[in-house]
Simulated scan of single mutants.
Amino acid sequence: MANSQITKRAVAVSLKQRMEHTPLEKITITDICDDCGLNRKSFYYHFQNKYELVIWIFEEEIGRPIREKVASNRVSLSLAIELCEALASERGFYANALRVTGPGSFREYLAHQMQPMVLRSLSMEHVPSLDRDETTYLISEFFLSSLYRWLERTPPSSAEAFLEGFSSASLALAKRIQHLLEKPTE
């Protein structure tokens, strides 16, 4: 294994261990480097910040294989279950990572990664009045908020139960919104 990969993996292990008990926002680059016996310059040679490191960890562990299946048009319930189970296997780390919002965050990254899948599943090409980017981003955020809450539960329900509950809640919300929009104004 190249030295670059060894360094990245050591930094990743440090961050994951710290995130089991410390919120991501409170972990410093110095903390991570001290754990690994590295200097800050070494960290910044590989990553711009700790949020990029979280995304790298996700990509190495889960993201790349999932994206390959999505690219081959194999988006299915079993793929969603696989993603949820992979996140749940390290739920402390991923719940902590999803808690952080804003530009460059893991949550924002995942929301953008989900947008093409959401667009495909909604068949929105026939609905010109909707802003596709905004709509798919909001749906992605709704899913990620639900996913975060699921990962925070002790113990979480099964991935299947989570996805079934999410689906039911989504349908109920959509029906309620449709009902409110169809109601005549008084």
Score class of each variant (00 low, 15 high):
67 R>E: 15
154 T>L: 08
16 K>M: 11
90 E>W: 06
173 L>F: 09
68 E>Y: 05
83 L>K: 02
94 Y>S: 04
87 L>S: 01
34 D>Y: 03
173 L>I: 07
48 Q>F: 03
20 E>H: 09
185 T>C: 06
129 S>G: 02
96 N>Y: 06
110 L>K: 05
69 K>A: 15
69 K>G: 11
186 E>D: 12
112 H>R: 14
25 E>R: 11
28 T>K: 05
116 P>G: 10
83 L>N: 04
95 A>R: 01
57 I>A: 04
73 N>D: 15
94 Y>L: 05
4 S>M: 05
156 P>G: 07
64 R>C: 08
29 I>D: 01
141 E>Q: 13
138 L>V: 05
6 I>K: 05
66 I>G: 02
106 F>Y: 12
74 R>D: 15
45 Y>E: 03
3 N>G: 10
124 M>R: 07
149 R>C: 11
77 L>N: 14
25 E>H: 04
179 H>L: 09
117 M>V: 15
138 L>N: 15
150 W>E: 06
184 P>G: 00
23 P>A: 04
67 R>P: 00
13 V>I: 14
54 V>N: 07
116 P>C: 11
100 V>F: 07
94 Y>V: 00
177 I>M: 12
181 L>E: 13
134 E>A: 12
128 P>L: 00
160 E>V: 12
47 F>Q: 00
61 E>A: 14
156 P>V: 04
184 P>T: 08
128 P>T: 02
186 E>S: 11
74 R>F: 09
81 I>C: 13
66 I>T: 06
17 Q>R: 13
10 A>D: 06
156 P>D: 07
133 D>P: 00
20 E>Q: 14
83 L>C: 06
23 P>G: 02
172 A>K: 14
24 L>E: 01
107 R>Q: 04
145 S>A: 02
65 P>G: 08
174 A>Y: 12
125 E>H: 14
89 S>L: 07
37 G>Q: 14
85 E>N: 15
100 V>A: 05
158 S>F: 06
157 S>L: 12
120 R>P: 00
148 Y>N: 08
130 L>R: 11
116 P>F: 08
146 S>G: 15
186 E>I: 08
148 Y>P: 05
19 M>R: 05
153 R>E: 15
93 F>K: 01
16 K>L: 03
175 K>W: 11
110 L>Q: 10
121 S>Y: 11
133 D>A: 09
182 E>T: 11
108 E>K: 06
116 P>V: 07
42 S>I: 01
85 E>G: 09
79 L>A: 10
124 M>C: 13
36 C>M: 03
81 I>Y: 11
30 T>E: 10
39 N>A: 03
